[in-house]
Design a protein around this nucleic acid. Structure first.
Lengths: 208, 208
DNA sequence: CAAAAGGATTGAGTTCATTCATTTTTGAAG
DNA sequence: CTTCAAAAATGAATGAACTCAATCCTTTTG
């Protein structure tokens, strides 16, 4: 790798680290591109050689985080708890905890809103792809549970995986929208939902 | 009502109408506050006496639309079709069609993203409240179907109503994110989902 | 009816993201 | 070691949202 390439890598990383630290410390809106540039020892213009918009910098940080969440989820899917509700709750627990490790509610809000308002942006698309992967992971968990006979076999696990993921996602968005809401409350609400869905999915029904 | 009050009403309305027309014609981003002000025969500053941000003007337009959607939905809930899948599809059909009558995909994208990125804004909160009403309406439909014995009685209709609404909502967001996607495709995808859920909710299960 | 008080309007001014013409740096070729 | 073309970096210029001190209208009061 030549000098030029190394410089490029280096600068990209410096910009990302500077932005990440500043966003976390001061909030997305309060940070100016010039601040990021100064902290990264480049000029404002250079930031635009690496990222198309300020939002893209944030999304780039967030996608790194989501990738880690997916990795963390794999462990649960490979070795899921026995019953449906616990399995779902375990996965969800990991998703939520990991998501808040490095990113504030405000950063998530902005990131999510960007993927909706500017879906054509490269990082937006990447983020959407990761969301799809997360949904697929939930589907994988359901398949594992189906194999064990813990859930009904007469439905499409991919589809229901997406249904469940959408619930988690919406609950998480509501959580991010309300600064006063605690992680415990989020977990409790998701738990209610999964318990309900686990019941609908269980093979033996005490119908009516 | 004094002259001052009348002026206020009048101006507010003029700003809203000007913005609505311009947003539709040129798209949200392409319209400047000054353009709206000019079209409404006021100054740019005045727009900020009536709305806190440019986004708030859009949200104000969108909430009017959502209120109409809720009204339209009431008719279906009052007199739902016999089977679960048709009832859900009917309601959804109305939601989607009405939503696209006056607002473009792009306008929805921006509006939805604003309610996430700036949830404290007055119109944001109003919008969120309307979303909750829509979810409750789906719940009402489920209650009606439960009374007829068309769906299992052993679940919380409010909770499942929210689950279903979240699905619709997410499908609609995905639709707005993809300019190439047709309304037919949206309907088809939602239909798949409701069919699947209708099955899970039906009282007699061909278990496993 | 005159004048003071308070509310609304105004548009020039500020701030920041983004652009772009210019300058600097890099790596290859001679 | 020079020279040169391409790639990158730079920062001054642009444009649009939003702010605010000054001004203009209503309304009220004496």
């Amino acid at each position: 790798m030549g000098l030029r390439e190394r410089h490029k890598e280096d600068r990209r990383l410096r910009i990302l680290q500077a932005a990440s630290a500043l966003f976390r410390a001061q909030g997305y809106d309060a940070v100016r591109i010039e601040d990021i540039a100064a902290q990264a020892d480049v000029s404002a213009g250079t930031c635009y050689n690496y990222f198309t918009t300020k939002g893209d910098i944030l999304l780039s940080i967030v996608t790194l985080e989501v990738e880690e969440v997916i990795d963390a989820g794999r462990a649960v899917v490979a070795r899921p708890p026995e019953d449906v509700a616990s399995a779902l709750d375990g996965l969800i627990h990991i998703y939520y905890d990991h998501s808040l490790m490095y990113l504030s509610k405000a950063m998530w809000r902005i990131a999510i809103s960007l993927t909706i308002s500017a879906p054509e942006t490269p990082f937006s698309q990447r983020y959407s792809g990761l969301d799809a992967k997360l949904a697929a992971q939930v589907g994988d968990l359901l398949v594992a549970l189906q194999h064990r006979g813990r859930v009904r076999a007469d439905f499409d696990p991919g589809l229901i995986g997406r249904v469940i993921f959408n619930q988690l996602n919406q609950a998480f968005i509501d959580f991010c929208k309300d600064e006063a809401m605690s992680l415990e409350t989020l977990r409790a609400e998701s738990g209610q939902m999964t318990a309900q869905l686990a019941r609908l999915l269980s093979p033996r029904v005490a119908a009516e």
